[in-house]
Simulated assay, not measured.
Amino acid sequence: MRKLLVTGAAAAAVASGVLMAPPAEAAGAVQIYRVYYDSPGSDRGSNKSLNGEWVQLFNTSRSSKSMKGVKVRDKTGYTYTFGSFTLKGRKSVYIHTGKGSNTATHRYWGRKWYVWNNTGDTAYLLYPNGRVADKCSWGRTGSSKYC
């Protein structure tokens, strides 16, 4: 018969009858890495300018993560929702504001005007059920924010 040696906090949890749940899988895996909220040049609404505005998500895990139903949203409520998409382990995906052809590393919101406010905003990464998985805020200075 094998015996299990339990020490430290785990022993205290077992002794008290409290079971610790594992952390939510996506909470520590896919995160907002960077937001480029002020695209280069004048904000005239060209597709090139719109696509200069983006959110970069990074999968910190070695395993692929399904992004189906995951959302990226700003304070105002503008929301991008992933369809059938898998983010490979240790890889990034960029969500551009404008139009383009989706690939494994670049997704396109298809909007005709800007989402991210240059004077301050917050990007939210939401689980399909609406709970916040991650967020990143910025103020009036700069053109991008590492989160």
Rank of each mutant, 00 (worst) to 15 (best):
K88F: 05
E25C: 00
K88H: 05
M20T: 11
D43E: 14
A12Y: 01
T60E: 06
S143E: 12
N118S: 14
K88P: 02
W54H: 15
A24T: 08
A27F: 09
T79C: 01
S92C: 09
S63I: 06
T105K: 05
S42C: 08
V115A: 04
F85A: 00
R111W: 14
G52E: 09
K65I: 04
D38P: 09
R107N: 06
A15Q: 15
S64G: 04
R2Q: 15
N118Q: 13
E53F: 06
Y108R: 02
A11M: 10
N102H: 14
R140M: 10
S144I: 10
K99P: 00
T79A: 01
H96W: 12
D74T: 00
A26M: 08
D43T: 11
Y78I: 07
C147V: 07
H106E: 10
A21P: 13
R73F: 02
T119C: 00
K65A: 04
Y127T: 08
M20H: 04
Y78T: 08
F85Y: 12
I95L: 10
A21C: 12
L50T: 11
G139S: 11
W113I: 06
W109G: 03
A12L: 08
L57C: 04
R2H: 10
P22T: 10
N47R: 07
L5Q: 13
L125K: 02
G139K: 11
H106V: 00
G28H: 14
Y80C: 00
K75M: 10
V35A: 08
G41D: 13
S144H: 15
A29H: 02
T86A: 07
A104S: 15
W54I: 09
A24I: 01
S92N: 09
G83W: 06
A29R: 03
V6G: 11
M20L: 13
S42R: 08
I32K: 04
Y36M: 11
A133E: 07
R34Q: 14
A104N: 11
T81I: 01
A29C: 03
T97R: 08
G52L: 07
T119V: 11
L4A: 10
N47L: 07
C147E: 03
S143W: 08
D121C: 00
G77E: 05
L125F: 10
R140V: 15
H96F: 09
